[in-house]
Amino acid sequence: MKTIKVNIVTPDGPVYDSEVNMLIANTATGEIGVLPGHIPMVAPLQVGAVRMKTDGKTTDIVAVSGGFLEVRPEKVTILAQAAEVASAIDVTRAKEAMKRAEERLAQTKQDDLDFKRADLSLRRATNRINVYEGNI
């Protein structure tokens, strides 16, 4: 089966680097799957999980906090400000962040800037917890 190279890079260094059969990511406009030989494309990503199917059976999951996806026929690069593979996630910290964000959401009004910020950090935290527990 043909493979495509996937690189996930953050400012703190590379996170994931491997050959995969298929990559599935949440872009701003919806979920897309990338197979080897895809046309060159760039798309912003949502906070979410990126799934890589390696040999038809196993799936690698990486939690990505925003950023964007660059596709070339033989290579996919994801540039994000934060990204973790499941084993590298600090789940207690994510749970604390989720609690804090929920409290703040309950206090602030919908159209507040703080509301948006809390909403985003809640999504990041739940995403990390989901990836850690493997229920995608």
């Binding site: 406009t29 046309i39 912003p44 925003g66 964007f68 070339r72 400000q81």
Partner: peptide, 23 residues
């Protein structure tokens, strides 16, 4: 490599990309 397909559009990507680049 300037022949990228932009999803949804070049402007929307610059919106995300340029702040990230400057930071």
């Amino acid at each position: 490599n300037a022949s990228y397909e932009f999803e949804p559009s070049g402007e929307a990507i610059l919106e995300v990309l340029l702040p990230q680049y400057a930071e």
